[in-house]
């Protein structure tokens, strides 16, 4: 099964479970969790079921396209359901069947893993799902988002697309994976992997990035004051990515590092509060929709 078919299968499956199929969010981010479709929407009382593919950038993991397991940008298939359904584990396992993975032919385990993202003031409890010893999914019940208690609790499933594909296609090197018939990951991503690595580690302009960080941070703060939650959040994402670039460039000392993380966290906290307040002001529209 090529990656394209895997994505289609997952989309079809989760669409049948009443998830809204979204597209990737158009601001750079390190993980699917950071899309407002997860991070903001999992806040507050409104029900929310969504599935989407998220290209996730981790500048520090760039390896010039030389490493068989690491990428500057990989893909996550993200599912969020709020409140978490009682049969979520069964739903998840059935999604593996949709990928042609028969649990009876494998060893599937739920191994304790507690997830935490200090930059976003977010934490959750759950598992890594192991398929024959390989971690293929992060399975998390959100407990806290942007410093706020998650209530009701959302469940988040994050499938590592390339990981899963390397198992399904039985390939040792991520670049050998078939995206669609006759087209490999190498064909599509080798050049960007190489160029992004060169940029990240050798060419990025640190002074400019520092300036950008300050500008993004300031703008996020400014428009948050005006109750513009979503635009403010976009700037927080930009702060986060800019910080990741600076960090990978090796220009942020460890002391400063903690400082930057806590600045982003402060913004995320304020936005989380502002988002809930704004939804409340609107009367939690999706909640009343369900009641009707």
């Amino acid at each position: 099964m090529n990656i394209q078919s895997m994505i289609l299968a997952l989309q079809t499956y989760w669409s049948k479970q009443n998830c809204i199929l979204m597209q990737s969010y158009d601001v750079e981010k390190g993980a699917g969790t950071m899309s407002p479709m997860t991070l903001l929407r999992s806040l507050g009382p409104e029900p929310w079921n969504v599935a989407y593919v998220e290209p996730s950038r981790r500048p520090d993991d760039g390896r010039y396209g030389q490493n068989p397991n690491r990428l500057y940008q990989h893909h996550q298939f993200q599912v969020v359901m709020k409140p978490s359904p009682d049969n979520i584990q069964e739903l998840y396992l059935d999604s593996l069947k949709a990928l042609g993975i028969d649990p009876l032919e494998h060893d599937i385990r739920f191994v304790e893993d507690n997830w935490e993202n200090p930059t976003l003031g977010a934490a959750g409890l759950g598992w890594e799902v192991w398929l024959d010893g390989m971690e293929i999914t992060q399975f998390t019940y959100f407990q806290q988002i942007g410093g706020l208690e998650a209530n009701p609790v959302s469940v988040e499933l994050t499938y590592g697309i390339e990981r899963l594909a390397s198992y399904i296609q039985d390939k040792e090197n991520v670049f050998d994976l078939e995206w669609t018939d006759g087209v490999t990951v190498k064909d599509i991503f080798l050049q960007p992997e190489y160029e992004h690595s060169v940029y990240t580690f050798e060419e990025s302009d640190a002074d400019m990035l520092f300036q950008l960080f300050l500008m993004y941070e300031k703008e996020a703060g400014r428009i948050m004051e005006k109750g513009l939650v979503f635009p403010a959040y976009d700037y927080v994402l930009k702060c986060s990515h800019t910080f990741n670039l600076l960090d990978a460039r090796g220009v942020i000392s460890v002391t400063e590092r903690t400082g930057y993380i806590s600045r982003i966290r402060q913004l995320a906290r304020r936005i989380a509060k502002a988002y809930v307040a704004e939804r409340e002001r609107l009367g939690f529209p999706m909640l009343s929709k369900e009641v009707q």
Binding site: H106, D107, L131, D132, G133, M134, Y167
Partner: peptide, 16 residues
Amino acid sequence: HALETVIRGNEKVLRA
């Protein structure tokens, strides 16, 4: 059942 598949998968993970 299908223990060979499980072994192959685990070997692959350890190899990586």
